[in-house]
Amino acid sequence: MIEMSEVSKIYPNGVSAINGITVKINKGEFVYVVGPSGAGKSTFIKMMYREEKPTTGSITVNGIQLSKLRNTKVPLFRRNLGVVFQDFKLLPTLTVFENVAFAMEVVEEHPKDIKKRVMEVLDLVGLKHKARMVPTELSGGEQQRVSIARSIVNSPQVVIADEPTGNLDPETSWEIMNILEEINNRGTTIVMATHNRDIVNNLKRRVIAIDNGRIVRDEQRGEYGYEY
């Protein structure tokens, strides 16, 4: 599903973010990516959806070799990925429904399909009854659920989440985790960068720990393992 081989990333300003990572994530896995701030987690994640290109090494996602992927083909590649962020990235002027529908509109789906599918995923994240509200009328947890709904509305094979619970209180974080777990149970691969020790230690999944741009630990049903 996702394969990295000897991947390094040096930013143009000379910062070396990733120093030779080789890793394989299989279909249907749920993976935590942990590590201190500035360890290279974000770069690691960004390279998966080709927001960043590796300086050396090769990455294959969904069978597509990213180093050979032309810029014009990136949009088509991204349609098989869902991305969730810490800050939700919702459009404040659109309603919940429109925010989710947006992802389908821009890939030119048929309006009929859009309506049906959007209500389906809103139901999955438990926000069907708030479809007409705008993001500012929702709590942080609800906004993140909308963002998750948007990321899965095009039925991607992989969902990449960059600290999805970073802005949320513990209780709300668990709501989000329940939804991600549900999505994972339906067969979608999930890669989640997180700082949330409580979640990693209680909902045990594969843990990839990154420090100084290297994988320092990779274990099934791992622990968070940091003091911060």
């Binding site: 959806y49 014009t72 949009p75 088509l76 590649f77 991204r78 349609r79 990925l81 991305v83 990235k89 459009l91 947006f102 992802a103 821009v106 890939v107 948007r150 095009n154």
Partner: peptide, 8 residues
């Protein structure tokens, strides 16, 4: 967002 969700 358009770029993230795969708009050409």
């Amino acid at each position: 967002i358009m770029r993230l969700v795969g708009a050409t």
